[in-house]
Amino acid sequence: MSGIVVHLPRGSGGADGEPGGGAVTLRLGPGEVARFGRGSSTTPVELRLADEAISRLAGEIRVTDDHWQLTNHSTTQTYLVENPEGAGEYLRVSPRRAGAPIPFEFSRVVLPTRRGTNVSFQVFAPDHVYLDPPGAGGSWGASRTVTAYSLDETATYFLVLVALCEPWLRDQSPVAVPTTPQVVERLRGHATGGGLTARAVSSHIDYLADEKLRIGAAAAANEAGAGGCTGTAAAGDRRNGKRDAVVALALKFAVVREEHLALLPPRAEAGARGR
């Protein structure tokens, strides 16, 4: 595993008695640690969680070669680690538990508070390690293989990717990358993706581009021909360029194939022809 991404949403941070601050994103490699809690001048933390029910040093995240671990420093509070892609799947990390291994690719770490809503942050662990095929020879330590593009075909981000690639796979003409609103509409009625908002779809596209397919911002801008644009127009071009680059790479390396279209809900026009 090349590392993890930790994201604290806007409004969750801030100092005691102050409104939550802006969003925080950390990138951690193997062996690195990030601490979380209320923090203070004598107890520095990388993720500051603004709630009086949370300890100054509430816990820490540690990255290993093939997973990440969560330590709970609280003496009284149990933390939850939820799998947003797992239909309610979660695990508990009890008080004083050290180095609990977390198996999820997407995780939401939830800390209890005295308010109506709990405090949480997300952890993304993009890369997976696989054994070489039987007969490849060599020991496990010498033959560990990391896939070039490690995607979970049951995850919502992959569903979004399939929807983006659908026009090419169905050989429609003229071919254009679906817009974010078009992806939202295309997934409407899907069991897990039917409730996605435009913001959620954009977040999945960002995750695909930045973490799963590792398409740099400069490359995405070049794809869109964004040179010379400023302000809102440039931001729109970068967004379009990122979508174009994601689709181009996914199709070029057969990350998404025709059989993946079965993951999408039936098309409305197909139902109309059937009637």
Rank of each mutant, 00 (worst) to 15 (best):
G138A: 10
Q172S: 03
G141S: 06
V175R: 15
T145V: 15
T145R: 14
H128P: 00
C165F: 10
P167N: 03
L151E: 09
R114V: 00
L151H: 01
A148R: 15
D132S: 10
N118T: 09
L151G: 02
V146W: 11
T154W: 02
L161F: 12
G141N: 07
P181S: 05
P103D: 08
F158T: 04
T145G: 04
F124I: 11
S173A: 10
R170P: 00
P101S: 12
E166A: 14
L131P: 01
T156M: 11
A176I: 00
T113M: 06
T180F: 13
P133D: 02
T147M: 13
S139K: 10
V177R: 12
D152P: 04
P167S: 02
A176S: 12
S107Q: 15
L131M: 02
D127K: 13
V119C: 09
R170Q: 03
Q172E: 15
T147Q: 13
W168P: 00
L164G: 03
S150H: 07
V162Y: 06
H128T: 09
A155M: 05
R114Y: 06
V184Y: 05
R170I: 01
R108A: 12
R144I: 03
T154C: 02
S139I: 08
G137D: 11
G116C: 07
D127M: 03
R114D: 14
V184M: 08
V129C: 03
L151P: 04
S120D: 06
S143A: 14
V183H: 02
V184T: 12
V110H: 08
P167Q: 04
V109R: 05
N118C: 04
T156Q: 12
G141P: 02
V129I: 14
F158D: 04
A163E: 03
R144N: 02
G116F: 15
F158I: 08
V183G: 01
T156D: 13
F106Y: 09
Q122M: 15
S143M: 12
Q182R: 08
P133I: 04
S173F: 00
L151V: 15
S107E: 13
S143C: 07
V177A: 14
G116A: 11
Q182H: 09
R114W: 05
V123S: 05
G137A: 09
L164V: 01
P112A: 07
I102K: 02
W168G: 00
R114C: 01
P134G: 07
T117K: 10
